[in-house]
Simulated assay, not measured.
Amino acid sequence: MSLPCHTVAAIGFIQSPYKQKFGVARQPGLVPAAEVVLPLLPIYGADCVRGLAEFDYVWLQFVFHGVVEEGWSPLVRPPRLGGKQKMGVFATRSPHRPNHLGLSLLKLERIEVDKQVRLYLSGADLLDGTPVLDIKPYIPFVEAKPEACSGFVAGPPPLLQVCWLPEAEQAFQAASLGADFRLLLEQSIAQDPRPAYQNIQERIYVMHLASTDVYFRIDQQIAWVVDLKPHLETIKGF
């Protein structure tokens, strides 16, 4: 039986420091320093967010736009299982879903209302340019179920220790990137953004974070920041 299709459209697009899929936190709240802005489209004015500032957290429903062209699969390999065991797509939060819909619970830092409504959110796991379809307030007594069974996901993932090589420290100081960027960088790398099946100690990984390319390698449970450079497209002014 087919149901009538209702067209949905974005109400705004996320402005995020995560410029590529690699490095984005795998779940909301794991990187508290990941701050994003959601400017709503002009049609959604101040009346649409009246009363929302009284809530600490909001649900965002969005589209995994970065993987739409990759399609979907009935079976996926969750990173929490080492990328070796398959689970049904509906038993995971994989972005490779039939409709590529995502749901994130983010901390609402503040709302600005002037010519455009802007929501400032933290703990984000969202790629820059993510289309947001809906916003709903988080209501703890309805939605918090700490005693619920969570299947194969038992607690937060283990964290890597993040260390800096002297050259990377010098590059950071020279670029004057600031304490907020450092915190974002370290919290993001500590989550181990590598594919679950990959453990090549000598490999140098590159994460495009804000306007900076961050180079790092992982040895056992230590992530070494190797270097930082301005992103090439940023230098070109794109």
Rank of each mutant, 00 (worst) to 15 (best):
L103K: 13
S104R: 03
L105Y: 09
L106M: 08
L106C: 05
L106I: 07
L108H: 02
L108M: 08
E109Y: 03
E109W: 03
E109T: 07
R110T: 11
I111L: 04
I111P: 00
V113K: 01
V113Y: 05
K115I: 07
K115H: 14
V117L: 02
V117Y: 01
R118G: 04
L119I: 04
L119P: 00
Y120V: 08
Y120P: 01
L121Q: 02
S122L: 07
S122F: 06
A124P: 04
D125Q: 05
D125N: 09
L126R: 02
L126N: 02
L126W: 02
L127S: 03
L127D: 00
D128N: 15
D128Y: 05
D128E: 14
T130G: 03
T130V: 08
T130D: 03
L133C: 08
D134Y: 10
D134M: 07
I135K: 00
I135S: 01
I135N: 00
K136V: 03
K136T: 02
P137N: 01
Y138S: 00
Y138N: 00
I139A: 10
P140V: 03
P140K: 00
V142H: 10
V142R: 09
E143L: 03
E143G: 02
E143D: 10
E143A: 04
A144Q: 07
A144W: 01
K145M: 13
P146M: 08
E147T: 12
E147F: 15
E147S: 14
E147H: 14
C149Q: 13
C149H: 13
S150M: 12
S150H: 12
F152K: 07
F152C: 08
V153D: 05
A154H: 14
A154E: 15
G155F: 06
P156N: 13
P156M: 11
P156K: 14
P157Y: 02
P158W: 14
L159K: 13
L159S: 13
L159C: 12
L159R: 15
L160I: 06
Q161M: 12
C163H: 15
C163I: 10
W164S: 12
W164K: 11
P166A: 12
P166F: 06
A168D: 04
Q170F: 11
Q170M: 11
A171C: 13
F172C: 05
F172Y: 12
F172W: 07
Q173D: 13
A174T: 12
A174D: 14
A174F: 08
A174L: 09
A174H: 12
S176Q: 14
L177H: 06
L177Q: 07
G178N: 04
A179N: 11
F181S: 04
R182Y: 11
R182S: 11
L183W: 13
L183C: 14
L184F: 12
L184H: 03
L185Q: 08
L185I: 07
Q187S: 11
Q187A: 13
A190D: 02
